[in-house]
Design a binder for these strands. Structure first.
Lengths: 193, 193
DNA sequence: AGAGTTATTGATAGATCAGTCAACAATTAT
DNA sequence: ATAATTGTTGACTGATCTATCAATAACTCT
């Protein structure tokens, strides 16, 4: 029994995310956020708490969406190795502008390091999910003979996640689609029997 | 024939670098820089231009030093493969505090992307030097039979540089020494014949 | 010693920062 | 209709930001 909110909270977070993703936390002003989100100052503070809380909510929504995409690409192909390949290749967004943004999660690692407990918890959750997803595919691939059975599955999984990070930073650094696909393919080939 | 500077410019840049490295450009205030560097405001502006120019000089000095270390580790071992191994293992600083800083160059990629021409030029120069150094070792290793001759040397080099990036971001994310060494070793083993 | 040059110091400008307050508007329940 | 509740609006606060200015200090060369 009160006045209803005039903006869509989810959409507002989405718009905030675009700014935080592109410029990081410190370089994104609340004024810029208000303009991008199309809301008033007090609306931001009453709906989201403060700039930091909005950032955390943006990060969570970003990670949820991106992680779902990763898992989808990883698990859709029938072949486990093709799943790994799709995961790594899929890091490179086809659209130049999107690809150049890199990964917002890695952006927060670079900006805050391991010092922020809440961010660390969010990242750990994502990493756990990705690790489980990838290691399952690795083990499947080893059983199927696609992936070298001599490899330690956990280490191979760490390797895939490490490669994802490298690719994401490369994208942010301006890597083109072709070179990213080449690097992804090379890494995938390092796993084959 | 004028009053001499009271502080050592090189040392002042070194101190500025520590701040920029730890917190990035945007989150480092000139006040914090003055305190850390132990100089007055006008001294900073007349000696370095402005905050951004100081950042660029810090970055250059950082990249020079770090790149020299990389090349040293890469080229010191008699065995080319051991050189690659030393390069990757050496990414993980033994000291926890230093390791947690990650790489300042990658920090600038994350903060500014490919949008800043001056930063891009500096990074490109480093990447070229590292690429040449690594590919030379790769080719040596292939000739010596240590490294799989079927691998495309350029792609293998890209792979090594990509792994470096992954390791550096992992370090910033809080990875411990052991896991970094494990990941480095795994990557190196992917190159062996 | 004095002129010329550069560094340091302290004050301050002007903009921008995150966040709050108070008045007003829109809705629901009674 | 009216009370209660919540959202919106715009002004505003105090802090902090980068950068500059003017005055003073330290040095070298003649």
């Amino acid at each position: 029994m009160a006045r209803p909110r005039e903006f869509d909270k989810t959409e507002a977070v989405r718009k905030a995310t675009r700014l935080f993703w592109a410029k990081g936390f410190a370089a994104t002003s609340t004024d810029a956020l208000l303009t991008e989100m199309g809301i008033g100052r007090q609306s931001l503070y009453s709906a989201f708490g403060d700039k930091r809380r909005l950032y955390l909510q943006s990060m969570q929504s970003y990670l949820d969406e991106v992680t779902a995409g990763h898992l989808d690409r990883l698990n859709t192909p029938a072949s486990p190795l093709d799943g790994i390949r799709a995961l790594l290749t899929g890091i490179a967004a086809v659209d130049d502008e999107t690809r150049a943004l890199g990964c917002m999660g890695i952006g927060s690692v670079s900006e805050f390091g391991a010092g922020d407990p809440e961010l660390c918890r969010m990242r750990d959750a994502v990493n756990r999910v990705l690790f489980e997803g990838v290691i399952a595919r690795i083990e499947q691939g080893q059983s199927a003979g696609e992936i070298d059975s001599h490899l330690d599955a956990r280490q191979a999984t760490e390797f895939v996640l490490l490669t994802m990070i490298g690719l994401q930073v490369s994208a942010r650094g301006g890597a083109d689609l072709e070179s990213m696909h080449r690097m992804a393919a090379f890494a995938v080939d390092r796993l084959t029997a």
